[in-house]
Design a protein around this nucleic acid. Sequence first.
DNA 1: CGGTTTTAGTGGCTTTTTTCACAGTAATAA
DNA 2: TTATTACTGTGAAAAAAGCCACTAAAACCG
Lengths: 210, 210
Amino acid sequence: MKKATKTEIPRKTVYRLSVYLRCLHKLKSNRIVTVSSEALARAAGVKPTQLRKDLTYLGQFGVRGLGYDVEQLSQMITVHLGTNRLQPVILVGAGNLGNALLQYHGFEPEGFEIIAAFDQDPQRQRDKILRIPLHPMSKLPHIVQEFRVRMAILAVPAAAAQEVANALIDAGILGILNFAPIVPAVPEHVALNNVNLAIELENLSYFLQE
Amino acid sequence: MKKATKTEIPRKTVYRLSVYLRCLHKLKSNRIVTVSSEALARAAGVKPTQLRKDLTYLGQFGVRGLGYDVEQLSQMITVHLGTNRLQPVILVGAGNLGNALLQYHGFEPEGFEIIAAFDQDPQRQRDKILRIPLHPMSKLPHIVQEFRVRMAILAVPAAAAQEVANALIDAGILGILNFAPIVPAVPEHVALNNVNLAIELENLSYFLQE
DNA sequence: CGGTTTTAGTGGCTTTTTTCACAGTAATAA
DNA sequence: TTATTACTGTGAAAAAAGCCACTAAAACCG
């Protein structure tokens, strides 16, 4: 039984909305003010009908015969995704991948800011003078609380993933972006997204054997 | 109309098989020889019934009342995913993320080896003496051919993504793991997987606003 | 050896997601 | 003003994915 007022947006649609938003940013920076569902769909790598269907969850503001207003649409999506405010994020695990992510500046323009990093050994591998402080794990609860952090990036080895995840959850973290090669168990109320680069490659390789 | 002999494995199942494989590796390194669908499912973050269903695509070799043989199962999956041979992979774009991926040693144990990297400016940011050579883009076709490379990791800025993707495809690359924030258009025969860290974070953030 | 427990395999039901076909509306051209 | 063209919006059908209840087999225990 669905609410008539605001139907839940499907999981997959939410994901694609982010993709659309990214494409819209790109269009905007190219001074393009209007885009058709076909053009935007192609940019996002989906079918036009799917794009339109996805957008209907946000209401209707496309102009028939013309397309969508880039600015308006991207604002609409932004509002719905709740990305209008800058979100503080912490990162745990300053190994290979963790350091890489700290040096990666792709989050800020999208509304996320890594405000602190944590590691078992806070002396670890600081060859670059990073603007992001590296703390010992013990400081985690304090910082999470002080900055009201809700999301964490988990970039620790498999063996430590579950333990660290537990620590994050205890500290009040509500969403975990997991890079560890195992999937930590999390309670119902915690959102978990997994990214495993090896799996992506492997998956790819499956589809290219003809 | 399906072939009776070998039903196509669903996309999602293929993806999860990789996840299972990873969990099995973990179990194997812990000297565990047998695992139940329930235990493996929990490790992989799926439901036991789904795991079993997924495995039926490979045939049946679980032992009722006991579980699956870790070694046998992981070999079975490996064969099906076609990951038994070491796959050479190239990386394009030695910026922030590209360098990070080069320093990331998570691919080798999974059967992938980054054999070469490419960048517009091959002098770029080689603070670490990497064992992986960094070439100018002009050498791409030659190396792809010589090492029979089929997959590439694309880690260039959005503005260059399409152009570089085209170059990869022209050189004979069949699968692209794309980290650029736009989705390049690729012909039918080329497999494309997209990874966008900002999108993952954004997606996560959506699901934690109650 | 028989009963009990554990655990895989499966058919089909349910839900979710995608696709399609076409109705509807605005802009534009003539 | 009318016709034409270029789009979007959407209900319904189709496809895909997920889930559950149940069956069957093997192991284990006494």
